[in-house]
């Protein structure tokens, strides 16, 4: 027997979100939530390919030796290259980066997923971690 699962009505947009990650995506609309859909994945394909290449130490070294040249080799769009050079994590997501791929660059920089969470939400890593330890953020 199946019973209906009670789920909350759509949440109102989170107030005061300081970052510009796209609020909606594809066919879905969940405020504050980038949806990695087909169009996003098309936009980010070359960026994500480059980020995946960081699985290998040799590629990480080549990237570090000349980041712009490495981006050019993967034919990134100029704004994608700029986002990578600037470590503009929000822009990387906006430009089609998948968080699982973007995280590989963060790891190279010694950054944690909590650091990225702070960036996406306008907090320090410590503040973000404190919110997680307090039971996570709602919205």
């Amino acid at each position: 027997m199946t019973t209906a699962v009670a789920v909350a009505p759509p949440s109102p947009p989170i107030k005061g979100s300081p970052m510009s990650t796209n609020e909606t995506g594809g066919r879905l609309n969940v405020p504050g939530t980038p949806i990695f859909d087909g169009q996003t994945s098309r936009r980010g394909l070359r960026l994500n390919k480059m980020l995946m290449s960081f699985r290998s130490a040799e590629n990480r070294e080549r990237f570090s030796a000349d980041e712009a040249a490495y981006c050019a080799e993967f034919q990134l769009a100029p704004e994608q290259t700029q986002a990578v050079l600037d470590r503009d994590w929000t822009a990387m997501i906006d430009l089609g980066g998948s968080i699982f791929y973007v995280y590989k660059l963060a790891m190279m920089d010694g950054r944690s997923m909590q650091y990225l969470g702070g960036v996406f939400t306008g907090m320090t890593e410590e503040e973000f971690l404190a919110e997680l330890r307090a039971g996570g953020r709602r919205g």
Binding site: I14, T21, E23, P34, I99, T121, L132, G136, R137, R138
Partner: peptide
């Protein structure tokens, strides 16, 4: 993990 709602639980 990403977006303004990152950290949502």
């Amino acid at each position: 993990l990403a977006g303004a709602r990152a950290g949502f639980i």
